[in-house]
């Protein structure tokens, strides 16, 4: 699993950081930061949850 984000689209809802705090955080501007670009399979479900709940469709998962 490879996680990328679109910083320019992010609206800082923080949903990802709450759904999957090991993979996502918010920087000082409140925008998305990826903590692990290749998280383990055990985090797959919560990462997909973050994708679904992101209001600005800024998170992409491939592989």
């Amino acid at each position: 699993m490879h996680v990328t984000t679109d910083h320019d689209r992010c609206v800082g809802s923080g949903q990802c950081a709450m759904q999957s705090p090991e993979v996502f955080d918010q920087d000082d501007d409140g925008l998305v930061v990826v903590l692990q670009e290749r998280p383990g399979a055990e985090l797959l479900e919560e990462v997909h949850r973050a994708v679904e709940l992101c209001p600005s469709q800024s998170i992409h998962v491939t592989g």
């Binding site: 609206v11 800082g12 923080g14 950081a17 709450m18 918010q26 000082d28 501007d29 409140g30 925008l31």
Partner: peptide, 9 residues
């Protein structure tokens, strides 16, 4: 963008 930092998790 100026307001987002006020409401982070």
């Amino acid at each position: 963008r100026m307001l987002i930092p006020e409401f982070t998790a």
